[in-house]
Design a protein around this nucleic acid. Structure first.
Length: 847
DNA sequence: AGCACGCCGACT
DNA sequence: GTCGGCGTGCTC
């Protein structure tokens, strides 16, 4: 047909010149390759690299995917399907991002689809599983937009706002009898008639704020005057109206009325009555409408350009960093806790912004608190984007689009913020760079945001500042080797000295019978004295729940998880036994099912028991607990922090959460209840982790000029690590640790890749692991492969685990080659019929 | 990741 | 005789 057209129309492009384009797309699936689709000729101009398109994949699935490349090579072995639709006319994924994603897939041994999946907020994914629902603020009667027949059809199918009925994209397509339904959905979204969500978040309810604005027929000056006259006898209503006019300059800017103001702001103002507001609404003077708002209290305008000056030490450090940046791409800022690193960061961010580049400021999850965000907003105002894991999907899209559009020049965020679509970064800050939470374990991509950040900076010509009080051994090594610039900040801000650290021997205390539950007399006494001085205490116990083990005193029976090889922890609050690995839970047993004895007792202790015991021993103190269990609800974390800040609570008992990013001026005592559980870990990083944890927790003691005290309870105070902690000498710790690493061939001298074989059947899992080990040894040599070995917890979620550790030379070429060999070995095992059920996982640079 | 195709056990 | 179990392989 088109051939005929070409013949009869001389003006048309000659057939020989007619370009047929093909697009290689990234599907959001764990597939190793890109897939090639054909671009409909009429839409050649619509293809955008980094834009989303909708394609048919397989027989049933309609997926949205990202265009990675456009070319003219028709696939030879198969007939390419057509792209069904183009969603974006501008990239949602930038070119530097695509490059980074490819690098991640390569380096972390996963597929690019897995990277894309982790990177894109699900609202940007638009799969056939995406659903639409009526916007809560929509009402058919008040709708002012004209609807097309198709739009009408969809709105009808969605029923009313109250039923909250949802349609999947596939259903929308069926309903309209067309495949290109996206235009309709986009239009409805634009008109705020519907909103979009993923099926995984089917309980998602957008946050809605009730707003009011002046009914549009009152906007003219004349009608307003008339209105004022009518209300002359109703002072309450007049007050409300005056207040509204004061807040919204309707005369100067008609458009301002469109946005209205929050109803709550009007109704709850002093001297204004809520009922007057309602009357005005009822009489049609004000109209009420709903707006979906960000859940994060982002202020739109900077409150004030906060001016603070750096101390002399901070200025020196800042200048040193700048000087290093002159010749080096990466600088490590090694600053003790409380040295005021944040001020330096802010200063550098400001400078980077002035030069016109973007800035990414990464923080570990537990350090990204409202405290730090508020502080940054005060300085950067609406240019600051915040990316937190507790954010809803819509909020993530908001930040994503904000970075794309240039609205957000600075983003402060957690691990996954490295996925945001930056294209002009000039500075990346990775605070607490040693934190293991920068590394993602499950699912793939198993990436370390610190390393990704470094690569991203490399691609975009940005500088990276790594900050920590206790740098990772690998990082400090790079600095010592001269690859990173090194700047040290050893003095605490505001002349506060480092806290005194005291070790208390729990074994001795137990022998002398001076233990009160899990407290030595020394710690308990110090807690009492501190509270007596009206000062606050933080107690650290790295285990949540009440007790990690429950046991029958008569026969030794212990309740175990049915899915994992762990004993169940007792949680007193819910009176349940819970598995911390898979979430399995059961009610607490009172009678031993093995022997019938009633003597079932708890063993060991977690945060909950510490809290409980302390409440009994110090009935007059206000004690609060902060761990995963008490902070699950969205605002509970803020609540707990707020109470402690206001000093409503005197003692805060918690897990790791209490170690990061919190500055409390009145805390003068920190207690580590059981240091031994932190030190004794079967892992080459155990000492490093323990050292970091002790130093970080200790850093919470004594700020703003007050010298604090730290008490560490341990059964063996002679352990070497304590010596380093007490002397507060990181370099000494590093020198000791780096020797160990070299001696035993661990990072930074060797690179580690950990293989995990998972199988539902123990025997087959072991066999598969042995076979994989063999294949690996054949390719990489005996010396490079350790294991297989069952990990301490050898079964999780019904899968038996076997681990193989591969150690490789650091050279990049070696690494690349080795990864190919590892893939080969994995393929051999997977092709074996008897191992079809085995899951093989590679974790590059495990932590 | 889905989903279809395909080959072996308990049922109307 | 069929319905359906989930093992295997493919998707441009």
């Amino acid at each position: 047909m088109s051939l005929t057209l070409d013949f009869i129309s001389p003006a048309a492009t000659p057939a020989a010149d007619r370009v047929t384009l093909f697009a290689d797309v990234i599907l959001p699936l764990p597939l190793p390759r890109l897939y090639t689709y054909r671009v409909p000729y009429e839409l050649n101009d619509n293809v955008v690299i980094g834009g989303r398109v909708i394609v048919q994949f397989g027989a049933k699935k309609t997926l949205s995917c990202i265009v990675a490349a456009v070319h003219e090579q028709a696939p030879k072995e198969y007939q390419a399907k057509y792209i069904l639709e183009f969603i974006d006319d501008a990239p949602v994924v930038t070119q530097p991002q695509l490059k980074l994603f490819r690098w991640m897939a390569d380096y972390y041994m996963c597929t690019i689809g897995e990277v894309i999946n982790a990177a894109l907020p699900s609202a940007l994914k638009l799969s056939s599983e995406s659903r639409i629902q009526l916007h809560p603020g929509f009402s058919r009667e008040e709708n002012e937009y004209p609807l097309s027949t198709q739009e009408e059809l969809i709105v009808d199918a969605l029923g009313t706002t109250e039923d909250g009925k949802a349609l999947t994209f596939t259903e929308v397509g069926d309903l309209l009898g067309i495949t290109s339904f996206h235009k309709v959905i986009k239009s409805l979204m634009h008109k705020d008639i519907i909103f979009l969500f993923e099926h995984t978040a089917d309980k998602y309810a957008p946050k809605v704020v009730k707003k009011v604005r002046l009914a549009h027929h009152f906007i003219s000056e004349a009608s307003l005057e008339q209105l004022f006259e009518q209300l002359a006898s109703k002072p309450k209503q007049l007050d409300v109206l005056m207040k509204y006019m004061q807040r919204v300059p309707v005369y100067q800017n008609e458009y301002a009325n469109q946005h209205g103001i929050e109803k709550a702001a009007l109704a709850s103002s002093p001297h204004l009555s809520a009922s007057a507001v309602n009357t005005l609404i009822k009489n049609g003077v004000l109209e009420q409408f709903d707006v979906i708002v960000s859940r994060f209290p982002l202020e739109n305008e900077p409150t004030a350009q906060l001016h603070f000056s750096l101390t002399e030490a901070q200025t020196t450090a800042r200048d040193e960093i700048m000087a290093h940046f002159g010749e080096k791409e990466i600088v490590l800022l090694h600053g003790v806790t409380g040295a005021g690193k944040t001020e330096i960061y802010i200063d550098l961010i400001r400078k980077a912004l002035e030069s016109g580049g973007q800035v990414l400021y990464l923080l570990p999850e537990i350090a990204l608190t409202a405290q730090i965000v508020t502080r940054l907003i005060r300085v950067f105002g609406s240019r600051l984007g915040v990316y937190h894991s507790k954010f809803s999907d819509n909020e993530r899209v908001e930040v994503w689009n904000g970075v794309l559009s240039g609205r957000f020049q600075v983003v402060v965020g957690v691990r996954s913020a490295v996925f945001l679509p930056f294209d002009n970064l000039s500075l990346i800050i990775v605070d607490e760079e040693h934190e293991s939470s920068y590394k993602q374990y499950e699912p793939a991509p198993r990436y370390n945001a610190r390393e990704v950040a470094l690569m991203m900076a490399n691609f975009q010509g940005a500088k990276t500042l790594l900050g920590s009080a206790t740098p990772a051994v690998e990082t400090y090594y790079q600095a010592k080797q001269g690859r990173y610039g090194l700047v040290s900040l050893s003095k605490r801000f505001g002349e506060a000295g480092m806290p005194d650290i005291e070790l208390v021997d729990t074994r001795k205390a137990r022998d002398q019978k001076t233990m009160h539950n899990h407290f030595t007399a020394d710690l308990l006494g110090e807690v009492e004295r501190t509270l007596g001085r009206q000062e606050q205490v933080i107690l650290f116990q790295n285990r949540r729940g009440y007790a990690p083990v429950v046991a029958c005193q008569d026969c030794g029976w212990i309740p175990k998880c049915t899915n994992c090889a762990v004993s169940l922890s007792y949680h007193k609050h819910s009176h349940e036994l819970r598995c911390h690995y898979c979430g399995y839970h059961d009610s607490m047993v009172t009678k031993c099912p093995a022997c019938g004895s009633r003597a079932v007792k708890t063993q060991g202790f977690g945060t909950e028991k510490i809290e409980d015991d302390l409440k009994i021993m110090l009935p007059q103190a206000n004690i609060q607990r902060m761990d995963l269990d008490t902070t699950r609800a969205k605002n509970s974390y803020q609540q707990i922090i707020g109470d402690f800040e206001k000093q409503t609570t005197n003692v805060l008992v918690g897990t790791q959460m209490v170690t990061k990013g919190l500055d409390f001026a009145n805390v003068s005592l920190v207690g580590i209840i059981n240091a031994d559980s932190i030190i004794h870990y079967p892992d080459f990083r155990a000492h490093e982790r323990a050292y970091q944890m002790f130093v970080q927790v200790s850093g919470r003691a004594g700020r703003k000029g007050k010298k604090g005290k730290v008490i560490i309870q341990t059964a063996d105070p002679t352990q070497v690590i304590f010596d380093k902690v007490i002397r507060n000498d990181y370099v000494e710790f590093y020198n000791y640790e780096i020797m160990q690493r070299q001696e035993h061939g661990y990072p930074p001298f060797m690179r580690v890749i950990k293989m995990t074989v998972k199988h539902m059947e123990q025997g087959l899992g072991e066999e598969a692991a042995i076979r994989l080990t063999q294949e690996l040894v054949d390719r990489l040599g005996r010396a490079a492969v350790l294991g297989p070995e069952a990990p301490y917890i050898f079964r999780i979620r019904n899968f038996y685990l076997q681990e193989i550790t591969i150690k490789l030379d650091r050279a990049h070429t070696v690494l690349k080659h080795a990864k190919q060999l590892i893939y080969d070995a994995m393929d051999v095992v997977k092709d074996q019929k008897e191992f079809k059920q085995a899951r093989l996982v590679a974790d590059v640079d495990p932590m």
